[in-house]
Design a protein around this nucleic acid. Sequence first.
DNA 1: CAGCATGACTGAAGCGCTTCAGTAGATCCA
DNA 2: TGGATCTACTGAAGCGCTTCAGTCATGCTG
Lengths: 359, 359
Amino acid sequence: MDSDRPRRPTLDTVASAVGVSRATVSNAYNRPDQLSASLRTRILETARSLGYAGPDPVARSLATRRNAAVGLMLPQGLSVAFTDPSLSIVLDGLASTVDGHDHCLVLMPGNDTGGPRPETVSRAQADVVVAYSLPDSAPALSAVSARGLPLVVIDQPVISGTARVEVDDSGGARLAASHLLALGHSRFGILTFALHPDGYRGPVSCSRRASIPFRVSRDRLTGYLDALENGGVAAENVPVWEASGSGRELGREGARWMLTRTPRPSALLCASDQLAFGALQAARDLGLSVPGDVSVVGFDDVPEASVSDPPLTTVRQPLAEKGRLAGQLALKLLAGARPPRATRLDVSLISRASCAPSK
Amino acid sequence: MDSDRPRRPTLDTVASAVGVSRATVSNAYNRPDQLSASLRTRILETARSLGYAGPDPVARSLATRRNAAVGLMLPQGLSVAFTDPSLSIVLDGLASTVDGHDHCLVLMPGNDTGGPRPETVSRAQADVVVAYSLPDSAPALSAVSARGLPLVVIDQPVISGTARVEVDDSGGARLAASHLLALGHSRFGILTFALHPDGYRGPVSCSRRASIPFRVSRDRLTGYLDALENGGVAAENVPVWEASGSGRELGREGARWMLTRTPRPSALLCASDQLAFGALQAARDLGLSVPGDVSVVGFDDVPEASVSDPPLTTVRQPLAEKGRLAGQLALKLLAGARPPRATRLDVSLISRASCAPSK
DNA sequence: CAGCATGACTGAAGCGCTTCAGTAGATCCA
DNA sequence: TGGATCTACTGAAGCGCTTCAGTCATGCTG
């Protein structure tokens, strides 16, 4: 307020105000043991009175070559992403791990191409990146490796040199399908979320079932179909509906289609709990009883599954754990560790009231 | 493992490989018009072949003194935050605006104190910060001003020198309450989300109604009560339940309490649609018909409100617009604009099937 | 009291990039 | 032909901080 410009104070400002070297002021903030306690308080007080808010994070990052930030790449825009409770839970595990270690989370929302733009990636101030369920060979992935940043992938296929945490999706799907087979069902319908990053929603043709870039969708779908084949149900006879996302309304739409077909399926396999909740609603809309007229299985076991009407039979995966683990891996890579072999988390079938024996 | 890692190439590496100055390489990336097209491609190709992924974002930020990142401060951890669809929508508006202008979003999740830790704030590499519905006088807010960063607040009280976007919460609440009064109701119950950042949930005592630090909760609550007083219903006779957040389950719990009181309210005013959905569920649990036995009004008008069972009468606020506006304001502040006066968005009552005349 | 740790602080070399005032040569116009 | 104007590129000064090899008193040991 007195000099030429209201330039923000820097380390130098403080240093010369106190009459010490810049290094000492830096130490006051970063290595309290390197100077006497009295000098330190003097420095900190002067800093406060000058309106110096501590070392500039960017300059610090440049000097230390560390950002204290982990980037998160999402397959879609944020609203789509956050409407999905299973993602929220994973994210929360990730964020709290990362925040607990004084690291920030930098969001890189995806767009239509199934992931963040490469430029977004190359401008992001992060020193490790977590990719959540991107389609195979998303451009964002190569952008990360071009920058030489360590990468943790969640729910993705193998990319060499990266850490990975995943879940046994096809095993879980088989669990679900086998459960329904054991209950005597023989007319099935499958509700899945996006198989391709093109926004399509509707019945799934054969050609569309080939070369699915989203690993999770692919594994769950093939898990269902494999188990059904083993149970004597031919894949051709199983209608599949692809929703463009995992929203409840999308599930409702798909289930409506499914439940108004002839013959009507007696059991619905849903690739997520959200889709299953939508299916529950669709059944209600049509005056069908669950599980009286139709059985429904979900996937994820989000908290609401235990209190829905009826409570949902579903495949549990440890969502929070997944996020936490990804966060820990990211921090380890940051500390210089080599990427460990993939961690695979277990799934299990949680049987509730949305399934009943076939009549 | 820390040994001779091949140092990443820098601008210098590329410059001397091509045989030009560093400035020219920089221009190749940032000001294509400053050099001949042929030289530019030669530089870019050499860069690629050297494995140079473009200017380092941190160094660039230091030199330009801009981060191309906006920070977002949230009142709570991410899962709580993202479970709330209204927040998701706001966030999406914000994120897409910001991403569309090549800016990243840096997340600063809150903790128990009702906002991010001050250290998180002072280390964040953002050059403008958006605060979403923090409690009055959260420490994070002073941390922002200590750093001299421009600030945009959403749903907050006035903080001088900041931009602000808000909604007429008390007006909306009055709309909702007046609607029910007009339908002849006289026994009310109010379901609100957190009034204080202490995790409490349960009935709200008088002392707790004083000095509520969350502006939104405060305005909606007083809006309801004002309108009811005007309609001849004394505030003392209106039970209020405070949920610790805005989750559906929390609403269900509160509504159960409300609907099992004697006398039973004939109308429930809910501070969010999520709480209202929970109330719908609670009514169903208790075998009560909505709106036959009890009328329910929400707040927000999230997409699901139009398809719930029954469709929800609610107060609409332009959520996506709120986020978009906040993003635009942030970008403007970044461009050097002075904080404009607060933008207040309109609300309106959307009448659906969850309310009926009192019997 | 020589010899030697120890504690407290400093100087200066970066970290990788942007930017701006120049400069050298080519082009143009009269 | 002689300036004026362009075009294409360069040199060097930062941006604000960390860090590491010193320096210099001071206290401790035998």
